[in-house]
Design a binder for these strands. Structure first.
Lengths: 116, 116
DNA sequence: TGACGATATACCGGGAGCCGATATAGTGCT
DNA sequence: AGCACTATATCGGCTCCCGGTATATCGTCA
């Protein structure tokens, strides 16, 4: 069942995810540090997307490599992360662009609907 | 130089693209039908993203297979496409979600900034 | 205390998606 | 004729995303 992306990730009509796992993770970390499992649940709640474990931990490694997040010391088995300043800045830019482009698309949709 | 996605697609800080090619194409088609090359230029203008030819034509084939766009008859070598009703609906849902999630992220960013 | 579900991280194989390079050819201008 | 722009198509390669699986701990309830 790996061909799911063809006909849609849940409710959406077959487009990819509106935002990659990276953006979702950064958004989730934006208000407070969280460990991997908590991220999965938080993202499922606010974005309606359940990240597969492979996706999550690979994305975490990538984001750390890019300097957008950093690990926080911990005593137990949890491995919490927090945003770096660079990560916050990247997220802000990303989300602003995402909003801007989405607005353009929505405006065009109204326009197109009126024409047909 | 295929490792570019690691450190960023142009100005963005290493996150993926805020919206997949599919969403960008549908947004571009939302107000009027366009052929492939026109899509490339329009998307570059309103989204600041230059889709590689491979990306573009594969995405077009995918979207057509999914019934979100359909070809329009043409006399010359251009192959224009337009949104289907299903495509318009999928785009509307997608963009609304995109905005909603982006807003949550931005709100959290403000919150997090105030705390630190 | 033993079982069981929830919590938590990690790795793997497969496949989809995005990319630049390249090929091919028609068009328009000078 | 020559050259840049328009236009579509395909290929190889690499990244990314995914579900499945393994492993281990924790809480709790019988």
């Amino acid at each position: 069942m790996a061909n799911d992306r063809e006909q849609g990730n849940g409710a959406l009509g077959g487009l990819g995810r509106y935002a990659g796992p990276g953006t979702l993770i950064l958004s989730s970390l934006a208000d407070s540090e969280k460990h991997g499992y908590a991220l999965t649940m938080d993202i499922a709640e606010f974005a309606g997307v359940r990240l597969a474990p492979g996706t999550l931990y690979e994305a975490l490694a990538r984001l750390e490599r890019q300097g957008l997040i950093e690990p926080v010391a911990s005593t137990d088995r949890r491995r919490p992360y927090r945003l770096t300043a660079q990560g916050a800045e990247a997220l802000r830019t990303q989300l602003a662009e995402q909003r801007r482009v989405a607005d353009i698309g929505l405006r065009r949709l109204e326009l197109g609907a009126r024409l047909s």
